[in-house]
């Protein structure tokens, strides 16, 4: 409370002198020394922080990333946009270096898709259980637990993948290394499940009760009510939750850095080692010189990743927006 108002004082004090019109209002209340006009100006300016941050991020990603295509590399060679996106070799250390991110993009997409095979059924199953099967007691506990699990640090899951899943896979399938696409996908699924379950459960819960009653009153069983009324009504919210969960899996770094094996190869076997975009950035940023072509190439990967997740996020908010507009309004 005290710190809170101090912060506000800090922001508002300098403006006392710039007051333009005589203040009208109640005397003796805290915050009386600032007029409506000034507070509106301050909050409007500060309200743009998030937008500014997003624009700055885009600006710097593009500034550093597009340098790869504009300036010649150290050995005088140039990288074309086509070579970058469609090139199937990522050899940043060679002379001349090769910056083809096709295997990295393929790896990102394949771990995401593979993890979705696990996270969508389990996340949706959990949400459907909590919203429509579980009793009030389980509900009351289940929702916070899911939220808690969403806070699980990714580096911890990465460590478990390395130390537990990898030796297990190595023994079970007799493969040279347990650090591979499947291992990373399993751990990514664990990260995505809480997101999917939590958002889908919110959407299912927000379906008005009188619609469910209408369905029951027509002789529907609980399953029929769920499948024919509740789920269809919550579909956009559920869809947005799934997309956000998968986007989270695709943008996740530590799990793939630690569990995916790290081989930049085009591969479609779940037991092969792969190197998704995020882990490439994290693994190689430490060994590049600022301003080198390798450094720019990593930012260019960042642009690609940003655009992919941005598209997914837009899709999710579009779907969620449809939901809030077309949703049932009890009136």
């Amino acid at each position: 409370m005290i710190t809170h108002s101090n912060v506000w004082r800090f922001f508002t004090k300098p403006l006392m002198k710039t007051r333009l019109a005589p203040r009208r209002g109640l005397n003796g209340l805290a915050g009386k020394d600032i007029g409506d006009r000034q507070s509106r100006i301050i909050f409007t300016v500060l309200g743009f922080t998030a937008l500014t941050a997003l624009l700055l991020i885009v600006l710097f990603l593009f500034l550093e990333g597009t340098a790869l295509f504009i300036h010649p590399a150290e050995d005088g060679s140039r990288v074309g946009l086509g070579d970058f996106i469609l090139g199937s070799f990522w050899y940043p250390g060679y002379t001349p270096p090769e910056f083809g991110i096709l295997p990295l993009m393929a790896a990102s997409l394949s771990v995401t898709v593979l993890s979705a095979c696990l996270s969508i059924p389990l996340g949706m199953g959990t949400a459907l259980y909590l919203s429509s099967v579980a009793g009030p007691r389980v509900r009351e506990w289940g929702k916070p637990v899911i939220e808690l699990l969403a806070a699980m640090p990714s580096v911890v899951l990465g460590l478990v993948g390395m130390m537990v899943i990898a030796p297990f896979m190595q023994e079970w399938w007799d493969v040279p290394s347990g650090l591979n696409m499947l291992n990373a996908s399993v751990m990514l699924a664990l990260m995505a499940i809480p997101t999917i379950a939590s958002i889908a459960d919110d959407a299912l819960e927000s379906v008005p009760r009188d619609l469910l009653e209408a369905s029951y009153a027509l002789g529907a069983t609980p399953l029929q009510t769920l499948m024919r009324t509740r789920l269809p009504c919550a579909l956009s919210g559920v869809g947005a939750g799934i997309i956000l969960g998968l986007t989270r899996a695709m943008g996740e770094t530590m799990v793939v850095l630690m569990c995916a094996g790290g081989a930049a190869q085009l591969s479609f076997s779940p037991l092969d080692a792969v190197r998704p975009m995020t882990s490439t950035i994290a693994a190689e940023m430490g060994e590049t010189a600022v301003g080198s072509s390798h450094y720019s190439a990593l930012f260019a990967i960042g642009i690609t990743l940003f655009l992919m997740t941005f598209a997914f996020n837009l899709l999710a908010s579009f779907i969620a927006g449809r939901y809030s507009q077309k949703g049932y309004q009890a009136a």
């Binding site: 991020i57 990603l61 994290a282 940023m285 960042g302 941005f310 996020n313 837009l314 908010s317």
Partner: peptide
């Protein structure tokens, strides 16, 4: 922009932090 900022992968924040 708030919604999209929330969805930006954390490694990209790292890249931005390094560059900026």
């Amino acid at each position: 922009s708030v919604a999209n900022l929330a969805g930006v992968p954390s490694v990209i924040f790292g890249l931005f932090g390094l560059a900026f």
